[in-house]
Design a protein around this nucleic acid. Structure first.
Lengths: 388, 388
DNA sequence: CAAATATTGCTATGGAGTTTACAAAGTACG
DNA sequence: CGTACTTTGTAAACTCCATAGCAATATTTG
């Protein structure tokens, strides 16, 4: 049982609650009339009227004066959530690239900045590249750091509560990097660092293939396998931020799974190690026997770790994402078949639809969650960038 | 992101919310004065006064007139939550026994009934025994079925949303039993059927060794291995009720783990298969070499499945419970050692303190949760047994 | 016995939402 | 083109809830 806050409510808090209710009803909606809001919220029309005007004067909403009216009766004034009152940033710091998304409070991406980074870049130069691209993104979007309400950065490896990746990370030298502190010098708003698999899982539920599901196992499949878990609609971090790291168990074959692709016979020597997998998938699609065998072995190994997660959590959906999701057409069917042999209750298996942007999108979503949480706990004053 | 209910609040709902706040403050507390309640809830003293009197007149609270006062000033009237306004029942239907606990709304057990059942009893006779013991428990406690606000029954095997164990259960013939419907004929209140491991996990967090933790992996260790998961303080059922069934994965050695104990060389033929494990644990404690080896092999196998759960969920605590938890002194140290080799972040490992009652206790807790949920969503009218 | 302290009961005040009523601004139709 | 109808916007009256402040009461302490 969750510990409930024991706190009484007075009338000003009542107004605040109802204002938040109206804001919720307004968000992610086309401009809405007072009557519609009244029926959605269950409040009376005059009450909503007062609240809506209050939201306009405090800056949370804007008025849309009636244009060409289409129905009978007096045309209604409409109210719209002012999503541009604040902005958030989501970043994906990957091995090869850094991707920055800047979005408004409705999650509409207003600017994108991408830049490639050498896979073996040392932490200092990677951080420098991050600083540069962040500055460029802000500049090009016509914003300053103080316009940003929350920043989330996705990195590989489990992230602890302080935002560090001390347990393990494939980025060279990254164990000692304190990314959260580094960015806190550049932003006054909350800065969150989170594991890339977890963020991609969030994205898949927000705008991807699992929008309908509350219990999701997300697989980030690439040269490294990872997983992100959403349980009861909430991203699961684990007590130390290491949830979903089933790949560390040797009995589960995730560590070695991608090597079936890399070591597949027949890969031309001209193809680098990073592109071997793509070559094998293409060859398998063309009917190459060795390639098909390699893919099947790969899927068999992936299925074992996936089965462990499915048995542990009994999700509604398993989403196959990450770099290899471009080859989901080859993977999904055998993955489904292998999984069926191993689990008690078979979940749906779907392919990711978001591709390479999923981590940065998930970072956006987490930043928006942070903003929402403040909004709905602290209350509605004037819309300004929150400080830590 | 959880979907929030969009509903406005008017003044009567405000009063209801504040009444619930006072009830929450009153529960699990010694009798409390109005002034104390006012400071805890943040409401004004007159407001609390009115609310408290309302609770008394509706039957949710009782007045304790001031007795010998210990402080200066006028002695204050005190209010107490009327836990006896309703009662709940928690049942453990095990292979060998049925245990029934009857408790008030504070979870105080007011009556216990236990009865052994043959392990190979057919479903009909097991259900008959259940009916009998339930009737006897109600009679001896001086209650009728209509006094009961919620009933929860724990059974082995994964339980789906409708309360059936269709996927798998070790109880003979139990696949086709519809326990929820069976009991619904005997009670008008909500009836919940749930997996025994999950219930034991709840109990351990409520009154056991994991009261401080919000992220728990509970192991029900006996001749069958099972697990119950509490994540973010909430019991995790999984989409189809099959969460925690990691034992079904062969790569994880839970199915065969107990056989190391049963097949240990040196077990006297006079010892039956059900008591072999106890004999081996005792022998190991006395220094028997074969027995120690058997225990170590057992623990090694248990550790693999546990590691899978720990890696998947990254819990704060692993609780070793179930029948074998009596031998936790032999298991805990090697389990800790083996686990440390396999996981990324080491959780605490603790032994269960509840013993054989844990499943029935957890059933009580779930029944109380059901009552609470109704209370805090439907609102406070007069305290009467809820109907489905 | 009086002073100090704390609780209880009562009244006035103000804030928030609802209901009711009515004017204003459109459309539909003869 | 004018009337009937529909819906919106706004104001006033009313109800309900919590608060603040004050008087009355009960008990301890010196």
């Amino acid at each position: 049982m969750t510990e409930q806050v024991i706190a009484g409510t007075d009338l000003s808090r009542l107004r605040e609650l109802n204002s938040l209710t109206v804001v919720r009803a307004l968000r992610d909606q086309p401009p809405t009339t007072v009557t519609e809001l009244a029926s959605v919220t269950g409040l009376s029309r005059p009450a909503v009227d007062v609240i809506a005007q209050g939201l306009v004067s405090s800056g949370w909403a804007t008025v849309v004066e009636p244009g060409g009216s289409s129905t009978v009766g007096r045309p209604a004034r409409r109210y719209r959530f002012r999503a541009t009152a604040g902005h958030v940033i989501g970043v994906d710091v990957g091995g090869h690239k850094i991707l920055v998304l800047l979005a408004d409070l409705d999650g509409n991406v207003v600017h994108t900045a991408r830049r490639s980074v050498a896979a073996d870049a040392d932490p200092a130069s990677r951080l420098a590249a991050l600083d540069e691209i962040l500055a460029a993104c802000l500049r090009d979007a016509g914003k300053t750091a103080s316009d940003i309400w929350a920043v989330t950065v996705g990195v590989t490896g489990p992230v602890d509560a302080s935002g560090k990746t001390t347990l393990f990370t494939p980025l060279p030298g990254w164990q000692t990097v304190d990314l959260a502190t580094h960015l806190s010098d550049r932003f006054t708003c909350p800065v969150i660092v989170e594991n890339d698999c977890k963020l991609a899982a969030l994205a898949e539920r927000w705008r991807g293939t699992a929008r309908d599901a509350n219990d999701i196992v997300f697989l980030l499949a690439g040269m490294r396998m990872g997983a992100g878990l959403i349980i009861d609609g909430v991203l699961r971090r684990g007590f130390g931020g290491a949830a979903g790291e089933i790949g560390a168990l040797k009995a589960v074959k995730w560590l070695t799974a991608p090597s079936h692709l890399q070591r597949c016979p027949g890969v031309p020597p001209t193809v680098g190690p990073d592109d071997a997998a793509a070559w094998v998938f293409n060859a398998a699609r063309d009917g190459n026997r060795d390639a098909r065998t390699a893919v099947n072995r790969y899927v068999k190994d992936v299925a074992i770790g996936t089965a462990a997660l499915v048995l542990a959590l009994d999700p509604q959906v398993v989403v196959f994402g990450g770099g290899f999701s471009r080859s989901a057409d080859l993977v999904l069917e055998p993955l489904h078949r292998e999984l069926r042999k191993l689990v008690l209750r078979m979940p749906e298996v779907r392919a990711s639809t978001l591709g390479a942007d999923s981590v940065a999108l998930g970072a956006l979503r987490l930043a928006l969650n942070e903003v929402d949480q403040r909004l709905f706990s602290v209350g509605l004053s004037a819309p300004v960038a929150p400080r830590r």
